Computed example of a mutant assay.
Amino acid sequence: MKVLLSGRSHRSNVTTKRPTPMDASILVVGSDEFQTTLLERLRYIAACTVEVTSSPKEVLPLIQAEQPDVLILQASQVGSLDLCRQIKQQTSLAWIYCILIAEQPQNAIEEILPGWNWELGFRAAALEGGADAYMWLLPNHGKGDMSWEAGLTLQNHLLQAQIQTGIGRVQIYRNLMRTNDVLSAIALADPLTELNNRRALDWELPRQIQNARVRDVPLSLLMLDIDYFKSINDNYGHPVGDRVLQLFSARLRHNLRFQDTPFRYGGEEFAIVLSNTNGQEAQQVAQRLNRAIGNQCFTVDNNRALNITASIGIASLQPDDDANGVSLLNRADQNLLRAKSNGRNRVICEANQPSDETPS
């Protein structure tokens, strides 16, 4: 069950100094009575989406799917502390702020063993178990005397502070992850062509190889080189060469399938990972690219259109290829060199595949 909560702090009529953003989320795990108590309390001190559930044993898949900012657990429920441990042991979930709440007042428990500081003992166990915070919670309805009212007000403030602290930490984490994503995208992107760069290929190819082997599906790789690119730079200048690289990259993108991933390997050389593609299918893709590149001029500017061709080498994943893709890359590159030495503007396949060594 999800509910949207907003409002003022209960009984104290003090609004939060740092308003909780509306996209913040809280998951409450506990008995029906515990949920009712928390929902009534949260209704006045938070502005967020709250979801409730009852069983700690069944909540981990929900946490993995929903990834709430704050998790509030009923301390007395079996499995609550173990759930904290499981969350903190998973890198993908460890940032979730876990608050363990005991709804039984300390003085009632101390009657069992007088003189023992149960609150400190339970708090130490909770923090050692992975909880970020631990607190006691008075019932929402009591005798109405001044001491109970004062205690309830203080606990409301504490709960509010714990939730704000948790959401604040999560926001810092999320912002850091967004920054890291931007930096990673910058590090893995070629600024000229807007394709992924060689570093990205070094990261992606092993992942694709592992996926192909786990799923038992084929994988192929194309290596492309723009023919006579040095003469373009020499005759027209590097700005024209850069523009050709941009137009060439755009034409690649527009003529690839959804599962194909292009990379600028370096200079005028490109690589394309063909997922779930065998050698024969890779040859068809390569020949289509060869025609798309060579059959239409590249309009560099209003006064200049250049005829561009490309040489392409193909390799398909073999059982004895290494997991990093070094041997796969080497074979594709060797076939590319064969295509260039045999006259350029052609596709060269694996030795065990039918080869079209004539211009496409």
Rank of each mutant, 00 (worst) to 15 (best):
M1R: 11
T15G: 13
T15K: 09
T15M: 13
D23F: 10
V28T: 12
G30E: 07
E40L: 13
R41L: 06
L42K: 09
V59G: 03
E66Q: 12
D69K: 00
V70P: 03
L73K: 06
G79R: 10
L83E: 01
L93H: 05
C98N: 03
W116R: 15
W116V: 15
W116Q: 12
G121F: 13
F122M: 13
A124Y: 10
A131P: 02
Y134T: 10
W136C: 09
L159K: 03
A161M: 11
A161K: 10
Q164Y: 03
Q164N: 14
T165W: 00
T165A: 11
V170D: 00
N175P: 00
L176K: 03
N180W: 09
L183C: 07
L183F: 01
P191R: 04
E194W: 01
E194Q: 15
D202S: 09
V214D: 13
V217N: 13
L221M: 00
D225C: 02
I226R: 01
K230A: 09
P239N: 12
D242T: 02
L245V: 05
L245Y: 00
Q246K: 08
F248Y: 12
S249W: 05
D260Q: 05
D260P: 03
G266S: 01
G266L: 01
L274C: 09
N278Y: 00
Q284F: 14
R291I: 08
T299Q: 15
T299E: 15
A305R: 15
L306D: 15
N307K: 14
G313T: 11
I314P: 05
S316D: 14
A323Y: 09
A332W: 00
L337K: 15
N342D: 14
N352Y: 10
Q353G: 09
D356I: 09
E357I: 12
T358N: 13
